[in-house]
Design a protein around this nucleic acid. Structure first.
Length: 275
DNA sequence: GGTAATGTTAGACT
DNA sequence: TAGTCTAACATTAC
């Protein structure tokens, strides 16, 4: 689930609860999610403070002293949960950052596909280095030129390719294509310049709106927020509330959504409104 | 109990 | 060679 808007919410969450507090310990129930040796990871964090955090695509990058950084990726099922004390048990908590005041930031994950690692600079990391421009920062000109370079690529695969545009995953690619009225089966070369411009604009509109929804819900819940429970937070004209649920097209109640595998992923779309 | 699941990557394939 | 596609990863929920 964690795509660009969720990452924006995680970033806001860390800023609200975790900055400028000394880390007294780092514990984990499964060190394989930590890149490199656990001892080095702990050593790099204990006694330090988070000074700032930013989202980069689907990665969260937290600043530490001396230009060091902590990077997190959430995989399919990752989240963050902050608790005021270390006695509270948190479901699927895998890594715990314990602060001096007794509060804890839990990096949670059901399937443990995500990863955490320390890096000296952004440039040294092979994953971050491979990221394309952020979906909310890419210009229309860059977007159009990327479309030209990836003519034969399927449009949904294009949106989800982190090396082309960073931050979009399966759910939001469906939502963006739905709002743009584009059939997800198309290759990029099938789309006119005019259609590509609509796609670009919808990418912005959908992601910006989703960011406000996610940030609002993370603030409302303060601690222990869950995004899964918040599907209904999206307005009715969005696919979010209908996929998986009633399968009714938000644009026309007489249309039924279709589920099929496109670009290797489970996709939901309206065969009548997306052409 | 079988199946699918919101991400990424290595390796296979064309 | 380069672009594109598929299987695998680990675990849970339905």
């Amino acid at each position: 689930m964690p795509e660009l808007p969720e990452l924006a919410a995680f970033s806001a969450y860390v800023k609200t609860h975790c900055l400028h507090k000394t880390i007294t310990d780092v514990t984990t129930s499964d060190s394989k999610v930590i890149h490199g040796a656990l001892s080095a990871f702990k050593k790099g964090l204990i006694g330090k403070q988070f000074s700032h955090t930013e989202r980069m695509g689907k990665y969260l990058v937290i600043d530490l002293p001396d230009d060091k950084k902590l990077a997190m990726h959430f995989g399919l099922t990752g989240s963050l949960v902050y608790t005021k004390n270390d006695a509270e048990s948190v479901r699927f908590s895998v890594v715990q950052f314990i602060f001096k005041d007794g509060s804890v930031l839990h990096w949670t994950s059901i399937r443990k596909f995500g990863k955490l690692w320390l890096l000296g600079s952004l440039q040294e990391d092979k994953f971050l280095k491979k990221l394309g421009p952020d979906a909310l920062k890419i210009s229309l000109a860059e977007f159009l030129s990327a479309a030209e370079k990836n003519k034969s690529k399927n449009c949904k695969a294009f949106l989800m390719d982190q090396a082309i545009i960073a931050g979009i995953g399966n759910e939001y690619s469906d939502e963006i294509l739905f709002q743009a009225g584009i059939d997800p089966h198309h290759a990029m070369k099938d789309l006119s310049k005019n259609t590509l411009t609509i796609l670009y604009k919808e990418m912005h509109t959908v992601l910006t709106y989703a960011c406000t929804v996610r940030i609002k819900s993370i603030k409302k819940n303060k601690e222990n927020f869950s995004m899964e429970k918040d599907r209904d937070a999206f307005k009715a004209s969005y696919l979010q509330a209908h996929r998986h649920v009633d399968m009714v097209c938000p644009k026309n109640k007489n249309h039924k959504l279709k589920k099929s595998t496109i670009a290797g992923r489970t996709s939901y779309y309206c065969p009548e409104d997306q052409i």
